[in-house]
Simulated scan of single mutants.
Amino acid sequence: MQAYFLRPRHCVFTIPEELRSFFLNDRSLLGELFYSVRDAILYMFSKMNKIENFTPGFVCVLHSFGRDLKWNPHIHALISEGGAGNITPWRIVKHFDYTFLRNSFRKVLLNRMSKHIGPSFKKVKNEMYTKHSNGFYVRVKPNSCTPDKTIKYITRYICRPVIAASRIDKYDGYSVTFHYSRHEDDALVTETVPLLVFIKRLIVHIPENISKSFDTMEFMQNITSKKKISENAFPVRNVGSYVPYLIWKQSILLTFGYDPLRCPKCGTSMLVLEV
């Protein structure tokens, strides 16, 4: 089981350009984006066998900008190529249902946005089903690099700046010239924009104090009495509701070689106050 938990699939969940302004004007919708990705992943694994209701492990990272620095919120997810079931301790899953993920992600996200925004969103919601009849874009291709490189690639997104200094080619006091590789064809693009436009593209990505850029989901569970999917069933902060913490502690220790309950600063063992 450990070998395949350490072989995550790197997936990217992207929202259409027509919806991006909603997330810019109301940053709390970014939380709905996290939950929508979570639900789509869990539904895909669960439908493989409803009795087993397989649960994967995954880490989600929010990325708010595209290569051109414009507002483009999307989620990078590392998903284990396998899941734990109600009966089977672990089943390897190599095939990710691309079509199902696209349609499920579209449905869940639009429903959550509709509930959050209200009746005024109904027209936009209907238009999204018409314009994006094949669902919202989800990249689920198998990784072409080793697991450690994939994990390092994702961790960069947690603290990565909007643009590296090496991509800024020129500044003359009035405008800024920078370059990037276009996502569609990997072609090199050079763009020159007024200074204030450049600054605006940067500061729009400054997160609010209450926001978060990543979330972790747990695959461990009590296989004899697994609960149904609920709003707070899978974040690690609520792992106690799913698995005895000692089993969780031992699994982390065996898999990653460190005690998750030991304080990295003082070395003392922390106590689980709430399960």
Score class of each variant (00 low, 15 high):
residue 158 I to F: 08
residue 152 K to C: 05
residue 185 D to Y: 05
residue 190 T to A: 04
residue 181 S to N: 14
residue 211 S to N: 06
residue 224 T to E: 13
residue 233 A to V: 01
residue 174 Y to C: 12
residue 225 S to V: 06
residue 209 N to M: 09
residue 167 R to C: 01
residue 162 V to H: 09
residue 221 Q to D: 06
residue 228 K to M: 09
residue 181 S to M: 10
residue 222 N to A: 10
residue 158 I to E: 07
residue 155 T to N: 13
residue 178 F to C: 01
residue 226 K to C: 10
residue 158 I to M: 15
residue 182 R to Q: 08
residue 201 R to T: 00
residue 212 K to E: 00
residue 223 I to C: 08
residue 151 I to K: 14
residue 231 E to A: 12
residue 221 Q to R: 15
residue 222 N to L: 08
residue 208 E to R: 13
residue 208 E to Q: 11
residue 234 F to H: 14
residue 204 V to K: 07
residue 185 D to F: 06
residue 224 T to H: 14
residue 182 R to V: 02
residue 188 L to A: 05
residue 172 D to C: 12
residue 181 S to V: 03
residue 173 G to S: 04
residue 208 E to A: 10
residue 232 N to V: 02
residue 154 I to G: 03
residue 155 T to C: 09
residue 188 L to D: 04
residue 191 E to H: 04
residue 230 S to Q: 09
residue 225 S to K: 13
residue 238 N to F: 15
residue 179 H to V: 00
residue 154 I to M: 11
residue 217 M to S: 12
residue 196 L to I: 07
residue 227 K to L: 14
residue 223 I to T: 10
residue 199 I to P: 02
residue 239 V to C: 06
residue 166 S to Y: 01
residue 217 M to F: 15
residue 227 K to S: 15
residue 222 N to D: 15
residue 214 F to G: 05
residue 213 S to N: 06
residue 238 N to Q: 09
residue 205 H to T: 06
residue 163 I to D: 03
residue 199 I to T: 13
residue 184 E to A: 13
residue 182 R to L: 07
residue 185 D to G: 06
residue 239 V to G: 00
residue 161 P to H: 04
residue 222 N to F: 09
residue 171 Y to H: 10
residue 165 A to H: 02
residue 237 R to I: 07
residue 170 K to A: 12
residue 179 H to F: 07
residue 217 M to K: 13
residue 238 N to K: 09
residue 200 K to V: 00
residue 189 V to A: 00
residue 203 I to D: 03
residue 157 Y to Q: 06
residue 168 I to D: 03
residue 227 K to P: 03
residue 165 A to D: 11
residue 171 Y to F: 15
residue 170 K to P: 00
residue 195 L to A: 09
residue 235 P to N: 08
residue 212 K to N: 00
residue 220 M to A: 12
residue 219 F to V: 03
residue 188 L to G: 01
residue 229 I to E: 06
residue 195 L to G: 01
residue 151 I to A: 13
residue 203 I to P: 04
residue 180 Y to F: 12
residue 201 R to L: 15
residue 167 R to D: 00
residue 204 V to Y: 00
residue 203 I to A: 07
residue 202 L to R: 02
residue 178 F to R: 01
residue 219 F to Q: 01
residue 201 R to G: 15
residue 214 F to P: 05
residue 202 L to P: 03
residue 213 S to A: 04
residue 224 T to K: 15
residue 188 L to I: 07
residue 212 K to Y: 11
residue 151 I to V: 15
residue 152 K to T: 11
residue 156 R to E: 08
residue 179 H to S: 10
residue 185 D to E: 06
residue 154 I to E: 05
residue 175 S to T: 10
residue 209 N to T: 12
residue 177 T to N: 02
residue 150 T to Q: 01
residue 187 A to G: 00
residue 151 I to F: 14
residue 178 F to S: 00
residue 219 F to D: 03
residue 207 P to Q: 03
residue 184 E to Y: 08
residue 164 A to K: 07
residue 182 R to C: 08
residue 179 H to A: 01
residue 209 N to D: 14
residue 161 P to I: 06
residue 176 V to C: 07
residue 201 R to K: 15
residue 204 V to D: 02
residue 172 D to I: 14
residue 207 P to Y: 04
residue 156 R to N: 10
residue 160 R to A: 13
residue 204 V to I: 14
residue 210 I to K: 15
residue 163 I to N: 02
residue 196 L to Y: 10
residue 163 I to G: 05
residue 233 A to L: 13
residue 162 V to W: 10
residue 192 T to G: 07
residue 198 F to W: 02
residue 156 R to Y: 03
residue 172 D to L: 10
